[in-house]
Amino acid sequence: MLKHQFIRRSCYRIMFYLGIVDFSCVCLNSIAAGYFSIKGTLYCTDPMLTYVIGCFSVCVIALWATSCATCLLLAINRCLTAIYPKLSDRVFGGYNTLILLLLPTFYFLYFLLFTPPVIFSSMHYAMFFNPFIGISGFEMHVEEPKYASPLHTINNVADVVLLSCTYAIFCAIMAKAPSSMTTSPKQQTFVQAALICSFNAFASVIYVIMQFVPTPTVVIVMGQISWQGSHGAPVFIYLFLNKSIRKAVLKLLGIRKNVTCRIGVRTVTSAPLTTVHFVR
C-alpha cells in the first residue's frame, strides 16, 4: 500500500493506518488469547503472566477503539467518494487525510489513559472487564458495576449506530443509481470497506451484551472470533477482492512470472502486468 499507485489515494492511506492498528492488536487478542485457551490459564493458575498480559490489555482496548474510529472514517471516505467525489477531494485531498487520522490517534490516547484493563477468561474464551466472570460465588449483576467501562460501551454502541447509518444512506442512494455505477472500482472498494466494518459492528454488539448479560459460550466465542476477524480479515479481503493489491503482492513475492506461449509463427510474451510484447 505504500507504493505510489496506492498511497496517493486517501482510502489506502486510511487502510494502511488501519493495518498498523490491526497488526498491533492481533498479537494480544489472537496469539495471547489462543495460548491462554489452550493452556486453560486463569489468574489463579498463572498470576504473573496473567497480570503482565492484563497490563498490556489496556492497550488492546485502546487499539479496538482506534479501529472503530478508523473504520468509521473509512466508511465516510468511501461514501463521499462514491456519492460526492468533489466534496471527498476537498475533505480528504492532499495532507487532509493525515490530519484526519490524528482523530483516531487522539482517541487511542484517551482510551489508553482512561479505561480499565480486561482479563482473558479461559472459561469463556474471551476478555472481560470483570475478573470474576464465571466464578461461583460472584454474582454478575453485583460485581459487574465495579469493573464496567462506560467508555467501552459508548464506543461500541456508537460504532454500530454510526456505521449502520453511514452504509444505509449509501445503499439507499446506490439503489437509485444507474447499473453502470454499481460496478465501478469505487463501488468495489466500498464492498471491501463494508466487509471490514461489518466485523467491527458484529464484535461491538456481542462484546457489549456479554459484559452485562449472561451469554452462552458459543455466542461469546463468535464475538471473540469477530473481534479477531476485524483485525485479521482485512488482509484476506484485500487479497481476494482487490485485483491491484493482489497483483502487486504476487509481483513482490516473485510469483507472478512472464507467461510465454506460441501462436502460429509468432511468440507472444506477456509481462507481469499489462504490457504485451510481440517477438517474431
Rank of each mutant, 00 (worst) to 15 (best):
H152W: 15
T275N: 06
E143V: 03
M174G: 01
T45S: 15
I61E: 11
M174N: 08
I133H: 14
A248H: 14
S24Q: 04
H277C: 04
S230A: 09
V191Y: 10
N258G: 04
A62Q: 05
R13Y: 03
N258M: 13
L195R: 03
G264A: 10
L239M: 07
E139W: 05
I31E: 04
R262L: 14
L273R: 06
T269I: 15
H231P: 00
Y35C: 05
P272E: 07
P150M: 13
S149Q: 05
R262T: 15
C68N: 13
A233V: 11
M48T: 09
Q228T: 11
Y147L: 09
V60Y: 02
T217Q: 09
L98H: 14
A32Q: 06
F106H: 07
I196T: 12
T215V: 08
R90C: 10
T97P: 06
Y207F: 12
I206N: 10
P216V: 09
C25D: 08
V276N: 03
E143R: 03
I225F: 11
A177Q: 08
L250N: 14
I206V: 15
T105E: 05
S121T: 09
S164L: 14
H231G: 02
I206C: 11
A148N: 09
E144L: 08
I76G: 00
V221Y: 07
K186E: 15
M123Y: 13
Y84F: 13
L101D: 02
G94K: 01
H277L: 09
F6Y: 10
Y12D: 04
T50M: 14
H4E: 14
F199R: 00
